[in-house]
């Protein structure tokens, strides 16, 4: 059996792969793990989005993988360079949890749901359908996306393994 090597996607990072390989990102809390897949071209991409919008950025050089509104266009573009077509792409996402139960009046406390909403808006903007999601809740997730099968595996401490 050939063990697929993981292609690691860090926090506030994105990566793409073609034909084979498993994209993996660990410890998603309020962050969102978004995957895009063109089954025909066998091109997959994954982004580990940390914040909803780049307009709040105070950093000098913007890390475009960090924000939903910059990560999604970048991911699509990187996949297109590998031969994917935006019209064939399908999205899946996981994460966006509220790790700690606080009074939800703090804006930062709602960051998980806001990340999810922002990712969805971006997908809509680019006309990419969201095929499946496992978002929200109050628990962390680690996800793996297999470029060969298009299956997204989600692991969590309290809820075991789920496949989308």
């Amino acid at each position: 059996m050939i063990q697929n090597a993981f292609i690691k996607v860090g926090m506030a990072d994105l990566n793409v792969t073609q034909r084979s390989g498993v994209l993996k990102t660990t410890g998603l809390g309020s962050c969102v793990g978004l995957t895009l897949y063109d089954a025909k071209a066998k091109v997959a991409g994954m982004a580990h989005v940390m914040l909803p919008a780049s307009e709040i950025a105070k950093e000098g050089t913007l890390n475009i993988a960090k924000y939903a509104d910059t990560a999604v266009p970048e991911l699509i573009e990187r996949m297109q360079k590998l031969g994917a077509a935006a019209s064939r792409m399908e999205a899946k996402m996981a994460g966006g949890a509220q790790m700690f139960a606080f009074a939800a009046n703090h804006d930062t406390m709602r960051i998980g749901p806001r990340n999810v909403e922002s990712c969805k808006e971006q997908l809509k903007k680019f006309g990419v359908p969201l095929k499946a999601e496992d978002t929200g809740g109050n628990y962390g997730r680690t996800i793996e996306f297999d470029c060969d099968t298009g299956i997204l595996v989600i692991r969590s401490v309290q809820h075991g393994v789920k496949e989308l």
Binding site: M11, T26, G29, G140
Partner: peptide, 15 residues
């Protein structure tokens, strides 16, 4: 309180 993956809990303090 949360019992979960270190990455998931700590990231909340990095926003």
């Amino acid at each position: 309180l949360a019992i979960d993956m270190a990455g998931a809990v700590l990231s909340f303090g990095l926003l």
